[in-house]
Design a protein around this nucleic acid. Structure first.
Length: 364
DNA sequence: CTTCCCTAATAGGTTACATCA
DNA sequence: AGTGATGTAACCTATTAGGGA
């Protein structure tokens, strides 16, 4: 357990005063789960966005990571937190969703000055872990920010603070509350998992379309917008990128499979052609040398092309030997197993850019 | 009730960058 | 000023596990 308090200008350099640590190493105990993290400072024009980020990140990453440890430790810790009534927290409807923060002109994402904040990080067993209607920090933050240069944010960061974007109807809440009660008794050792509401997921998708990666500012803004923790937004984007990559890998795999099939077929065809040519040559001693068909590959685009030496003129040789007629079309175009470009997975049904090839452009 | 699939979340590793001695 | 050690953040990848169909 860690209690940290910093007073004064909550700049990046100001380090919280740690106390109640096991061995005095507050850094280590960041990873130990339950923490009461408190910072107070003057509102110096939002210079602490990064601090907020760090604070949230710690809440998100490490506390997520250690929430189970936390729960375990809570088994022996008679701490119960229920500091804010859910009734205090208004629900945000999907229609209230703002445009992507970093694309708007009002710079709203920069307005969230939290020079001083008190983050109460808790994974207390009696809290509804997944279904708190809103991140309490948001609410108290706004309450504290009124008319005072001395801000205090007092938030409870739990496993999830969503529910603002849909999916928070009474029935659901009741159902989950009931489940939470059951969890209190039965499921303390299992990790909770939220499901983002459709609106949240759609919003994140839209964001992903614009940026597959987020800078800290965007992440914070998005988290604020969706009432998620920045860590959740971060994880969502990571997983989303992973899914996209996986899809692309599947597409690549299919593509290579087709290439392999095509090459196999081409190889079979060439073998057959070779066989026929040998038969032809053996059966006709006056067989004139046909131009050799060779496959060359363009070094830049790895495209297979057919060249015939010494001439590329169409050579249809029809030879009648005894009862056999063989027709060899030496200019038969081989199947190109390598299309112009590798197919690309377009996660958003975008039309792929028009194919452009240097051979074509060179010709034009 | 079981199974399968999707996906949120975690863990561990790598890399880039900043800071400091 | 250059350099190595160290810490941190961001990201990737593999994996786990919750929950819905």
């Amino acid at each position: 357990m860690e209690l940290g308090l910093s007073l004064g200008d909550a700049s990046k350099d100001s380090k919280p005063v740690g106390f109640l640590t096991k061995n005095g190493d507050s850094e280590k105990h960041k990873k130990n789960g339950f923490g009461f993290f408190m910072e107070l400072g003057l509102n110096t024009n939002g210079g602490n966005q990064e601090l907020k980020e760090r604070s949230h990140e710690n809440d998100g990453g490490d506390d997520d990571q250690t929430s189970e440890d936390t729960r375990a430790s809570m088994e022996n810790t008679p701490i119960q937190l229920d500091l804010l009534s859910r009734a205090l927290v208004p629900h945000q409807t999907p229609s209230q969703i703002q445009p992507l923060p970093w694309t708007s002109d009002n710079g709203s994402s920069e307005n969230g000055s939290i020079s001083g904040n008190v983050g109460l990080v808790a994974a207390a067993r009696d809290l509804e872990v997944n279904r708190l209607p809103v991140t309490a920090a948001e609410e108290v933050s706004s309450a504290n920010s009124v008319g005072s240069p001395f801000q205090m944010n007092f938030g409870i960061y739990i496993n999830n603070g969503n529910e603002n974007l849909g999916g928070n109807d009474v029935t659901e809440t009741e159902r989950v509350s009931s489940r939470a009660s059951d969890d209190d008794e039965n499921c303390l050792n299992t990790r909770k998992k939220l499901r983002l509401s459709k609106e949240q997921a759609a919003f994140l998708e839209e964001s992903f379309k614009e940026h597959s990666t987020l800078n800290p500012k965007q992440k914070l803004a998005l988290a604020k917008q969706l009432n998620l923790r920045p860590r959740q937004v971060e994880v969502w984007f990571q997983n989303r990128r992973a899914r996209t990559k996986l899809k692309q890998t599947e597409v690549d795999c299919e593509y290579l499979k087709r290439c392999c099939e095509t090459l196999t077929e081409e190889n079979r065809r060439l073998h057959k052609e070779l066989q026929e040519l040998r038969v032809l040559k053996n059966s006709n001693p006056f067989y004139t040398q046909l131009p050799a068909t060779t496959l060359t590959m363009c070094p830049s685009c790895e495209r297979v092309a057919t060249t015939s030496t010494p001439t590329t003129a169409t050579t249809n040789t029809t030879t009648t030997t005894n009862a056999k007629t063989t027709t060899v079309d030496s200019t038969a175009k081989p199947i190109n197993p390598f299309p112009l470009t590798r197919p690309r997975f377009y996660p958003f049904s975008q039309t792929p850019p028009p194919a452009h090839h240097h051979h074509q452009s060179a010709a034009s």
